[in-house]
Simulated assay, not measured.
Amino acid sequence: MPREEKTPATRVLRQETLLVLALSVGASALSAVISFTGSVTAPGDLQDRAATLNGSQAPGRPWLDLAWQLFGIATALVPVALVAHLLLREGAGGLRALGLDRRRPGSDLGRGALVAAAIGGSGLLFYLAVWATGANLTVVPESLPDVWWKFPVLIASAVQNSLLEEVVVVGYLLRRLGQLGWTPAAALLASSALRGTYHLYQGIGGFVGNLVMGVVFVFLYRRWGRIGPLVAAHALIDIVAFGGYALLAGEVDWLPTPP
């Protein structure tokens, strides 16, 4: 006989959801709003400022820098572990309830690659267009030193981003909002707006582009019933962005770099 899932009381669900968000992307959203406010109220143009995604934490001290990089990646994944724990306690089977498991690795990776190709390419063109208007900061995907661990850390950072965002913002949040009685349209809007907001530190383009990405990802999650392909897609997008910038920055004239 299958194990019965037990839905916690509404009040507990609401408090739990707010706490998970406050420990993860919710705090990032507030930080992004403050950062963007500082950027738009400072003298000069937005594109003259840089938004660095993966920067050195201890310049000139590579081993200490590596320790800080790994510490940041590991601690950023704690909310994912918390979500898995809460879903297990609920009787839902942990992250498997969201479609993050090893049942369909080939399908998840294949679908993720197709989504990454479509969103990654269009996202780059959108960023370049918005940056040219002066409505976006210059995004610097990485500014790590040229040491042996640079690319492994960038890959690990990309995987961490994908796990955190897709588990919390899509799988977990949509599940909890549905249990709280939100309509599918309202839940889609909340998830997408949250994704856009915690990217606002990059500028208007970062907000709009990620809001649209959020809509697409929610649609695909509801269609496939799995976040596995979304985690794969997000990881591939970030790996290409981080690694591509590391290889091309300063080598091509179409890629914006800090002044």
Rank of each mutant, 00 (worst) to 15 (best):
A51R: 11
V12K: 13
Y198C: 04
D253W: 13
L46K: 10
V168C: 00
F126R: 03
K6A: 08
A42E: 04
V140L: 06
R49G: 04
Y172N: 00
A193V: 12
D108E: 00
G91E: 05
T197W: 03
G225E: 01
L164P: 07
V130L: 11
V20L: 13
R89A: 13
D108K: 03
L82D: 01
H199W: 09
T10W: 01
A22K: 08
I34F: 05
L87G: 03
G106Y: 02
P152A: 10
A132S: 15
I73M: 14
F242I: 12
D45K: 14
T138V: 09
V216I: 15
A235S: 15
A116H: 07
P2G: 06
L128G: 11
N136M: 12
G44P: 06
S31I: 05
P43S: 15
P8M: 11
Q160H: 12
Q47A: 11
V139Y: 05
L236C: 10
G120K: 08
Q47W: 06
L163K: 06
L98Q: 03
G178L: 01
V169W: 00
P229C: 04
P105I: 06
I227V: 12
S162M: 11
R49H: 15
R89M: 07
S35G: 11
A92S: 09
L236M: 15
L248D: 07
G134W: 07
G91W: 01
P62Q: 08
V33N: 01
A241C: 11
G203W: 00
W68V: 15
A118H: 09
G196I: 03
L70R: 04
P2N: 12
E142R: 08
L46G: 07
K6H: 12
A50K: 05
W68E: 13
G171P: 01
A50T: 12
V25F: 05
A158E: 09
P2R: 12
L137A: 15
W149C: 04
A135G: 12
P141W: 04
G244E: 02
R103V: 04
S157E: 04
V168K: 00
P229T: 03
G178P: 03
R175F: 02
R103G: 05
K150H: 14
T41D: 04
G112V: 02
A58C: 10
A50I: 02
L21A: 05
V80F: 00
V115C: 02
Y201A: 13
V33D: 01
W149V: 07
I239A: 11
K6V: 09
M1E: 10
L163F: 09
V139M: 14
R103P: 00
S35K: 05
W131Y: 14
G225P: 05
V208E: 09
